[in-house]
Amino acid sequence: MSLDHLKPEIETIVANSDTNVDERLLKICELLEANVSHYDWVGFYFRNGDKEELKLGPYVGEPTDHTIIPFGKGICGQVAVSNENFVVPDVSAQDNYIACSITVKAEIVVPIFVNGENIGQIDIDSKTPDPFTEADERFLEFVCKKVSGIL
């Protein structure tokens, strides 16, 4: 399934006010992981109150010990500081990488902005080396923009 074909499903999930925000975020994770072959772990991290750290939100994939990530640490922590997308074609080539699993080969993280403030991000791990394209980046920016409307 092409990424553009998933956009209406994302919009439907986000618009479903019969479920709470975490349930909608989990449904987005499930949709992406089930329909994009190179999305092996899909989750959301959010700023943990006033602390300079991220807290794990809804996700699908292998369990992770990384439920709290300090700003600046790992790919997610760097995105919390840079406010920019971070595409990592080969995680083994990154000095500041937090390994969740030895099977992860690549990662993409896209920030979520609410009123111009970076309040979280979507994080996707892949067991496929260098799988992420500009299409993935643009699609995940779309997802984050839709998600920001319910936060």
Score class of each variant (00 low, 15 high):
Phe139Gln: 01
Ile150Trp: 07
Asp65His: 09
Val88Thr: 07
Leu25Gln: 13
Ala99Glu: 15
Ile108Tyr: 00
Lys105Asn: 13
Glu134Gly: 04
Lys7Thr: 11
Cys29Trp: 01
Lys73Ser: 14
Gly49Gln: 11
Asp40Ser: 09
Lys146Ala: 12
Thr133Leu: 05
Pro70Trp: 04
Asn115Pro: 02
Lys27Asp: 14
Thr103Gln: 11
Ile69Asp: 03
Ser126Ala: 10
Asp136Ala: 04
Val109Gly: 02
Asn35Tyr: 02
Ile69Gln: 01
Asp22Tyr: 07
Val147Trp: 02
Lys55Pro: 00
Lys51Ser: 13
Glu107Ser: 03
Glu33Gly: 05
Val114Thr: 10
Phe132Ala: 08
Asn48Ile: 01
Glu53Ser: 12
Asp22Ile: 03
Trp41Asn: 07
Asp18Gln: 14
Pro58Tyr: 01
Phe139Pro: 01
Leu151Ser: 07
Asp136Ser: 06
Ile75Cys: 09
Glu137Asn: 08
Glu137Thr: 13
Phe46Asn: 04
Asn83Asp: 10
Gly49Glu: 13
Cys100Leu: 12
His5Arg: 14
Ile122Tyr: 10
Leu3Cys: 04
Pro111Glu: 06
Ala99Tyr: 08
His66Thr: 12
Ile10Thr: 09
Thr67Lys: 15
Asp125Pro: 05
Asn85Glu: 08
Ser148His: 03
Gln121Asp: 14
Leu54Asp: 05
His5Gly: 05
Ala15Ile: 06
Ser148Asn: 03
Asn20Gly: 08
Asp95Tyr: 11
Glu53Thr: 09
Val88Asp: 03
Tyr97Cys: 03
Glu23Ala: 14
Leu26Gly: 04
Val60Ser: 05
Ile102Phe: 10
Leu3Arg: 10
Leu31Gly: 07
Lys27Trp: 00
Cys29Gln: 05
Asp40Tyr: 04
Gly43Asp: 04
Gly72Thr: 10
Pro111Ser: 08
Asn48Lys: 15
Ile124Gly: 00
Pro70Glu: 14
Asn83Lys: 07
Cys76Gln: 06
Val147Gly: 04
Thr103Gly: 00
Asn20Tyr: 05
Asp123Met: 09
Ile124Pro: 00
Val14Phe: 11
Val114Asp: 03
Leu32Asn: 02
Thr12Cys: 07
Val109Leu: 04
Lys55Ile: 14
Val143Ser: 08
Ala135Trp: 00
Val60Pro: 01
Ser2Gln: 12
Val87Arg: 14
Glu137Gln: 13
Gly43Gln: 08
Asn85Trp: 01
Ala93Thr: 08
Gln94Pro: 00
Val42Arg: 07
Cys100Ala: 11
Asn115Gln: 14
Asn16Gly: 04
Glu53Cys: 06
Leu26Ala: 09
Ala80Met: 11
Thr133Asn: 02
Gly49Ile: 05
Pro129Phe: 03
Gly57Ala: 09
Thr103Lys: 11
Phe86Lys: 15
Arg47Ala: 07
Asn83Phe: 03
Cys76Asn: 08
Glu9Ala: 06
Thr133Arg: 05
Lys73Val: 15
Cys29Tyr: 02
Asp50Ser: 12
Asp65Pro: 04
Thr12Arg: 15
Ile122Ala: 10
Tyr45Gly: 01
Phe139Thr: 00
Ser101Ala: 12
Phe113Glu: 03
Leu25His: 10
Lys146Gln: 14
Arg47Cys: 06
